[in-house]
Structures are given as structure tokens and as C-alpha cells.
Design a protein around this nucleic acid. Structure first.
Lengths: 96, 96
DNA sequence: ATAATTTGGTTTATAAAATAAACTTCTTTA
DNA sequence: TAAAGAAGTTTATTTTATAAACCAAATTAT
């Protein structure tokens, strides 16, 4: 009847992060922060969770002298997102 | 960019409850329990939250001698659900 | 030169949520 | 009439989300 919703993706901020990364190939921490409106702390925690789950890769580089955290989706993450969207449909569409 | 997601609806069980009630006009506690796979305790709590928010009406009647809890969506609940679905789209569709 | 501010985050503490276990009341069945 | 079942509710626990506090390096102002 209702397909279970991946708890890692069924979270407003993490869903926003993934939604952003899906369409952008890679993004920097400050950009994600700005686009999602999250606080740095919250964002840091949620990126960690996504990274630990293997849904995103987080690369710590430098941009000149400043640290720069780059994030991008993994294939696993993309698959999880697709599955999540499929599962969501079981809640949004009229059943028969 | 991303529209906020009503926290009352952005919950797996409450979303399942509402999704069910939307398409059914009214439903009894045990039926909702069976369809959602929730435990009675969890279901009771979540129905309370939806009811307190005015998203559903909960009517306690009797079916013969047995208590019978009937649930149905309110207009407010239906509107909230529609708005939630609209908001969700901002996370699922490619932005420009 | 050095003090203050900004940037780019992380860690930790708190508040809120989800969930199940335990319990209650009434009814039916053995 | 004792035991089991149905229909929920209440309470306790675990998990989660979130922000506040913190840290280090770099930049800007004095």
C-alpha cells in the first residue's frame, strides 16, 4: 500500500540538499547554505549524514587560501533519491 | 527556491493517514491501523496531532457495543495536503 | 603591526518528534 | 467466571532536527 520512505531523504533539509545537488553536479558549502537557508551547523550535520550514508561525496579542498567544501551526489545517492520519489508517489496518488 | 514543508504532514505515518483519508471520505481506527501498518499507540498519537491541528475530525461512536473511532478529513486538512504536495514539488522538479 | 571582523566551517547542547511498550476498559468466548 | 481479545490511550524511550557555541585561518581596519 504505502512504500516506506527512506528516513535519510525524508527530511526537509537533507531533501533540499539532495534536490540541489542532483541538478548541479557539484556545489560548495556556502552556496548550499544560501540556497537552502540552513544554518552552517545544521548543514554541516546533515551533509555528514548524507556522506556517511554514501549518498554524497564531500571533498575538502582549498580555493586559494580559503578552505572549500565541495559536495556532489554519488550514484548511490541518485538511486536513493529516485527510489524515494517513487515511494512518495504511493502517498500522493489516488489508489485503486 | 524551496518551499517549507508543513511538519505536520511531512511525517511518514501522518502522511499515510492523510493520504488514506483523502481518498476515502471516512475510515475507522482499525482500518487505518491495518492499511498503514502502524502500531495502535503510534496511530493514536498521530491521529491526535492531526485532530488538534484541525486537519481531521475524530468521532468516537459505537458499533454495537464496541467503541468505534471514525476519522475524516476536514477542509483545512485537504487544503493543507494540497499545499504540502505543491511545496514538495519544489524539491522534486528540476529548477531553472 | 596588531586588533577586530569575516569566512568557513565543526562540535556540542537542547528541543522536538517518532515510536513502541505498558496499561486500561469493555466484550466476547472457553 | 476466568481467560482472551478488541479498541484504544498514556507514558517512557529513542531518535532526530536544529541552533548555539566554538575554533582556526584569513582579511580588513586602525
Amino acid at each position: 500500500m504505502f512504500q516506506p520512505l527512506d528516513p535519510l531523504l525524508h527530511s526537509e533539509l537533507r531533501l533540499a540538499i539532495v534536490s540541489l545537488l542532483i541538478s548541479v553536479e557539484e556545489a560548495e558549502f556556502p552556496y548550499i547554505k544560501e540556497q537552502t537557508g540552513a544554518t552552517a551547523g545544521n548543514l554541516s550535520v546533515q551533509l555528514d549524514k548524507l556522506s556517511t550514508a554514501g549518498y554524497i561525496d564531500v571533498e575538502k579542498t582549498f580555493k586559494g587560501k580559503k578552505p572549500c567544501t565541495l559536495c556532489r551526489m554519488t550514484d548511490k545517492g541518485r538511486e536513493a533519491f529516485e527510489a524515494y520519489v517513487e515511494a512518495l508517489k504511493s502517498y500522493l496518488v489516488v489508489k485503486n
